[in-house]
Design a protein around this nucleic acid. Structure first.
Lengths: 208, 208
DNA sequence: CCTAAAGTGGACTATATAGTCCACCACAGC
DNA sequence: GCTGTGGTGGACTATATAGTCCACTTTAGG
């Protein structure tokens, strides 16, 4: 909830809110599977069982819908990593988080990170989309950073270690691993990449 | 050179070869900047100064052209990393390779890895494209692996280290770093990610 | 109830884009 | 120079897709 109504004060009844959500949901699923450009509004109509006028009733144009999809996918991706992502403050926690990510990745037929795919496709051509995706990755990275910061406060992580940089490195490994996993249709690159990142964190610990 | 004529024995004069190359070149540039789906054949025509009939004279359809673009971009990406990529057999070599990648990335306005972008966009919907991209990444990974193997043969890398896995980890870091760099329009994630990967290799060395 | 605004259905338009077709040009070998 | 095949130009078609419009239905509130 708590979506954006800032610029356009719309009434939106209960029924309307449901429809709107259904549209974004359907669009998110389709876009996740085939990308923004290969998902037509007709596809979204079919998937959500909604007419074209409704699409344009709730969204100014396709771009606006895509922005909402970015928001939803961000929520989904972060939520799917819970409860691990909220408490990455030990090596065992990092390891079970890795297991969860690998499991999630194996569960979907469309491997890869929805946010990574959106970024890849939109960043060069849509500045608004780019900014939101930067924010999405920042949220993700911040979650990781918080766990590391807690470890440093406890003295488990060396004072010289930079949680912000470490978090960025970890997220890069996850993204790269997901891309190669999606391409090769194998979990191995993902596992190997995250393991590297975890070992990288471990190297900055005071006691192994 | 050494392109594929295997299935269709085409005559192809000197002039024709030049035109064909010009088409692939133009398509590669446009696709690199805006992606496959946002690059129309009309755009390719305009960029290469070629008529539509020529496009279909040299390529069965857009998909066939895209496959050639994958081949060209693979060559380009590997070539752009030379001479470093051919001799990644020491820490200093790895570091100057990293510098070269960062420099390359900063030089282009369309940041990110052309192969990564192609993979992201095509892998789910085109099996032929996917297979070629798997091969492309394998070539890249193999280059890295060869350097590491040489280090192991020299005894600089521990016998327990697996050059293949290490190479995959390094490539993952590069891809993830490039994606975040492209999105945030900053080189930092890329530098941090590759540094992590290099340290990861260093950890498996016999002497630091 | 009654009404106004939100919600809905679906036909319609404009356009972009992949792909086709055929006439014409250029050059290599005879 | 003739001829045939590769090369080229550009008009043409079919279709998919974003976006518009308007008549109709449902809902909330007085």
């Amino acid at each position: 909830m708590s979506n954006n109504q800032q610029s356009e004060p719309r009434a939106l009844t209960r029924r309307g809110a449901v429809t709107r959500t259904r549209i974004i949901d359907a669009a998110a699923n389709l876009i996740c599977a085939h990308g923004v450009d290969r998902t037509s509004l007709d596809d979204v109509m079919a998937e959500s069982g909604v007419s074209k006028s409704q699409l344009y009733h709730y969204f100014a144009d396709k771009d606006a819908l895509v922005l909402e999809v970015i928001a939803l996918q961000t929520e989904r991706v972060l939520a799917a990593q819970q409860p691990h992502l909220g408490a990455l403050d030990s090596l065992p926690a990092l390891r079970s988080w890795r297991d969860a990510i690998v499991r999630l990745n194996e569960g979907t037929d469309a491997r890869g990170c929805p946010l990574g795919s959106l970024a890849c496709e939109l960043v060069n051509d849509s500045e608004p989309a780019r900014q939101r995706l930067v924010a999405s990755f920042a949220m993700w990275s911040d979650c990781i950073e918080q766990g590391l910061t807690k470890m440093r406060e406890r003295g488990e992580l060396a004072a010289s270690a930079d949680p912000h940089e470490l978090a960025l490195a970890v997220l890069s490994a996850v993204q790269g691993g997901l891309l190669l996993a999606k391409t090769t249709q194998s979990s191995r690159p993902l596992t190997i990449a995250i393991d590297m990142a975890i070992e990288h964190v471990a190297k900055h610990m005071t006691s192994t």
